[in-house]
């Protein structure tokens, strides 16, 4: 699938309600089934939170959405994950293209040991960026502004990104993800390594990004999930230690009156 083809599909489905749809997805690591039969539809330009105890497969599902799991030898997926109606696991789909359209922010801030400017421009460059220096400057500023970190770094664009504070590094990583103009941003516990104030800044940023992007966040922080997300999916591992989706619905409902007893027990801290 080329950029051009995907953009064509994109046009046709621009008004579709769901950004990503999982249909009967099973994920295996070797012979071990890590995730069992997950089906869920992620609404466009909304924040969806994945919650659940450690090892429940929520991160695995998240990483399946931009095929990061492919990097793990022996991982395999059954079922379909649709992005703009196209199964991203079809043999004619290149994971590299998927990852450009579905960006990712990781648990530990991981800026490249390069300048802030080069951190932002890396994505565009490797994806075949063509533009003048001025256009590149504009792209960098746009990405940094998008991640609400422009004012803090505009005077030190050529200093290493690793010199920033943890919270700033994470926003730099978000800016870096924005620079390749993704539609969906996956966040894998983006605040777990940050202090409360940095966490709050990232959360505000997420609400800001929600206007243009679809965001999926894995979090262990119930309060965070209830603060920022529009929808919440609760995962739990079953008797075979395979993760499965227990309940999925509007965050409001999950955090006031969940339908499943296990969801209620988890949210109110009875286990996990």
């Amino acid at each position: 699938m080329t950029v051009a083809e995907l953009s064509a599909v994109d046009m046709a489905q621009a008004n579709g309600r769901y950004a990503v749809e999982l249909h009967n997805t099973h994920i295996y690591y070797g012979s071990f089934r890590a995730v069992k039969d997950v089906s869920l539809q992620i609404e466009r330009q909304r924040i969806t939170a994945f919650i659940g105890p450690s090892g429940c497969g929520k991160s695995t599902v998240l990483r399946a959405i931009n095929r990061m799991n492919d990097l793990i030898p022996g991982s395999r997926l059954e079922g379909r994950i649709l992005f703009h109606g196209k199964n991203i696991y079809d043999p004619d789909v290149d994971p590299v293209e998927v990852r450009r359209r579905i960006g990712m922010v990781f648990q530990k801030p991981n800026p490249f040991p390069k300048s802030i400017y080069d951190n932002i421009m890396f994505g565009p460059r490797i994806n075949g960026w063509r533009g003048t220096k001025a256009q590149a400057d504009e792209l960098v500023e746009r990405a940094l502004r998008g991640a609400a970190i422009w004012d803090e770094v505009k005077d030190k664009l050529h200093q290493p990104g690793t010199a920033l504070s943890g919270g700033q590094q994470q926003r730099l990583c978000i800016a870096r993800a924005l620079a390749v103009q993704p539609e969906v941003i996956l966040m894998d516990e983006p605040c777990s390594a940050l202090d409360p104030i940095s966490t709050l800044k990232i959360e505000e940023l997420m609400l800001e990004l929600r206007r243009n992007y679809t965001i999926i966040i894995v979090t262990h922080n119930m309060q965070q999930a209830s603060r920022v997300s529009d929808y919440t999916a609760f995962f739990l591992m079953d008797a075979d230690r395979a993760g499965q989706l227990v309940e999925y619905g509007p965050t409001e409902q999950i955090f006031t009156s969940p339908n499943d007893k296990r969801t209620e027990d988890y949210i109110s801290g009875r286990f996990g």
Binding site: N66, M68, L71, V96, E97, R99, R100, G103, M104, F106, K108, N110, P111, F112, P113, F122, G123, I126, N127, C173, R176, A177, V180
Partner: peptide, 15 residues
């Protein structure tokens, strides 16, 4: 070389 650097790169669509 930390795995996180590789992941960041792949995550941006690098080959």
């Amino acid at each position: 070389v930390p795995q996180s650097i590789r992941q960041a790169s792949y995550g941006l669509g690098a080959t």
